[in-house]
Design a protein around this nucleic acid. Sequence first.
DNA 1: GATGAATGAGCGTTCATTCAT
DNA 2: AATGAATGAACGCTCATTCAT
Lengths: 223, 223, 223, 223
Amino acid sequence: MDKLLSNFQIKVQESIYNKNPQSSDLGKRIIQNSIFLIDEIGFESFTFKKLGTKIGSNESSIYRYFDNKHKLLVYLSSWYWAWMEYRMVMETFGISEAKPKLRKAIQVVSRAIKEDSAYTYINEVVLHRIIINENSKSFLTKEVDKENQEGYFFIYKRLVIRLKEMICECNPEYSYPASLASTIIETALHQHFLKDHFISITDCKNQTTPTDFLLDLVERTLD
Amino acid sequence: MDKLLSNFQIKVQESIYNKNPQSSDLGKRIIQNSIFLIDEIGFESFTFKKLGTKIGSNESSIYRYFDNKHKLLVYLSSWYWAWMEYRMVMETFGISEAKPKLRKAIQVVSRAIKEDSAYTYINEVVLHRIIINENSKSFLTKEVDKENQEGYFFIYKRLVIRLKEMICECNPEYSYPASLASTIIETALHQHFLKDHFISITDCKNQTTPTDFLLDLVERTLD
Amino acid sequence: MDKLLSNFQIKVQESIYNKNPQSSDLGKRIIQNSIFLIDEIGFESFTFKKLGTKIGSNESSIYRYFDNKHKLLVYLSSWYWAWMEYRMVMETFGISEAKPKLRKAIQVVSRAIKEDSAYTYINEVVLHRIIINENSKSFLTKEVDKENQEGYFFIYKRLVIRLKEMICECNPEYSYPASLASTIIETALHQHFLKDHFISITDCKNQTTPTDFLLDLVERTLD
Amino acid sequence: MDKLLSNFQIKVQESIYNKNPQSSDLGKRIIQNSIFLIDEIGFESFTFKKLGTKIGSNESSIYRYFDNKHKLLVYLSSWYWAWMEYRMVMETFGISEAKPKLRKAIQVVSRAIKEDSAYTYINEVVLHRIIINENSKSFLTKEVDKENQEGYFFIYKRLVIRLKEMICECNPEYSYPASLASTIIETALHQHFLKDHFISITDCKNQTTPTDFLLDLVERTLD
DNA sequence: GATGAATGAGCGTTCATTCAT
DNA sequence: AATGAATGAACGCTCATTCAT
């Protein structure tokens, strides 16, 4: 499957970028290094100027690809969720029973990403770290409605809806499948954050991942 | 109780501010108007310069109270959670049974804030709106660990821990009381956001608040 | 005469351009659309990038024709004055008496351009508008003397000198024929501007054109 | 009279600046040196950064006074015309006859400014030079109507109207007093420019100033 | 000849902050 | 204690231009 994935190009909403970063070497360097740089200094301190310095290129070149750092974050976020969705679809594909299928899906979205799959210029371990810290900033803005209409969060929402459908298949009577699905996705990130920074308000440790908590939670809820 | 509350001063960690904004008229105007301004233009666009203009005061005066806008956000956030904790404590005080007590607590933290209690210079309806949008930005930073050590998030965590304890009282066997508690708090905000912006991935509407979803979720989980 | 004009190529100083825009389709599109774009957004906001976008071409292509936007303006200006001179020569050709000849010449340079002659890719109505607004910027620069030596304003000056000669023929005793001629040309543009923007300091209206004022002025001056 | 002038503060429309440059030492240095710098390098090349360097101050300080270089130009222009108006009023004050009064007014607005009156931080000789070159750029913009409504060109127009009234007093029958007045002002500048750069299309020399031409023109026109 | 990509330089602006009052 | 003025630093962005194809 990894072989297969390596040929598969993750597709991100065109409206987010001016020029597809996957279409050139510079574009790939922008993506690759923005992940490292955001991880290193945080999104607030991150600027195109610093990124330009890192990739040995003028910041003006980066503007060819993205209008501003916010759009770049939306891109990274979309890429992450597209990748996540792909994995979820692949890993649950062969499972016919509803419950094991949902369990697998939850595992996919909540497990720690342990090794770099190395089949692209994107380091998924680091990307996962920045998604935990920065994902919500991509939509917690004053422009969220306008950007939502332009499809900026389409992939993210599609993933949640897939999860919701799996929940419905498990228990068609359940009243809050969408809310549960969005809570799972959000919690998968949030508990990771808590385990790293606010350990007193989570039960997750490096051994006990959010996965255990979520699997348990969903099982109790849907049964 | 409202009477009581009006005399009760919400106390916020001293390390956050340079001079207590509750100690002067200017300080109160800073708090009062920062809430309105952040609600209006968003935290990213918010600056001390703009706030200064709004309150008819020089920006340099605001520095007497807060070192930077991030600390002001932490203050507002802490104030919100202190206020929430106070309400939770008050409203659950008389309830002796564990389950109804927890139910009430969940209601308090997740219900829509409908009317302005008007007993302070703080507009809680608007504050609630900015907490939904900006709360996570107060800790999703590179300085989180340092600031956590200085107690910036103490009140927030104490509230979660109170909730966790109520969960434990309901079901001492349950393995993830802290994670569940933090998930409740997070979800209470997040589902509000979704209902306002991403309606396709929530079941909450203006009628069906996050409260219903959370009460149902917790009941199923702990029984 | 229109027939004749359509075959007649307005010739502009070679030193202004790198490649003659009349020699290719792209060149003509550059001229045609630069007139519309300058009219639309003003010369200050006008850039080759925006022009490139408008004509569906890369900005670098425009550099083949003009070194910079200033030279393009000089080109448009020269084209306008060459066209104006041509019309003046044509329309006064058959008139033998000095005074009616001068009167006709003044009419030609000062009248409102009402209809699009449509025999070229250049919209003269719009070009007239941008000449009113931008002509003086072509010479009010620090480089004026150098550019003047290179012949950038040759056509403009030749037109004024033609007018001066007509003035001399009317009244060989008059002491300021050149100043009067240049004032006529300048005033023909300036009063158009005033009538559109500063109506309190002109007597020109849409009915009373600069022509009336100028004819009257010259008549009184030369008699 | 010079004594009197030195106490008289030229007043410029408040809407043009953020902070009155006459109110501080830095403000005066900004005005003083902007005149020299614009004269030296031209308005197109002039930037706040360069001005900041010249006055040994950060460009950001200049923004306290003017939003942009265009507003600074409008300020200089307004100052010039206010100063001109003041001189015109003073020098014509004692003249009761209409014709000599008008002649004096024309002399005031068109004569070469020969010496620095030295009673302010403003060098009028240099200011006159930049007005000749840059004045028209203050209104030949896309924003002219909006700015006109905000009173940016009030002083300029008031001067023209004063001149117009003098013309009317000379000859109440004359049909184009406003156009003649605006032409005089414009020509006073334009002929100065031509004498310095396009000598072939003016009769003005260093000896024969625009004044002679204009006095003659007006006399012939109004008699 | 025309184009697309990339770039260096610098512009206008804002921000957070300091200093003097 | 509060304010106003001034500033250094850096941000986001655009421009004109070059280079390779």
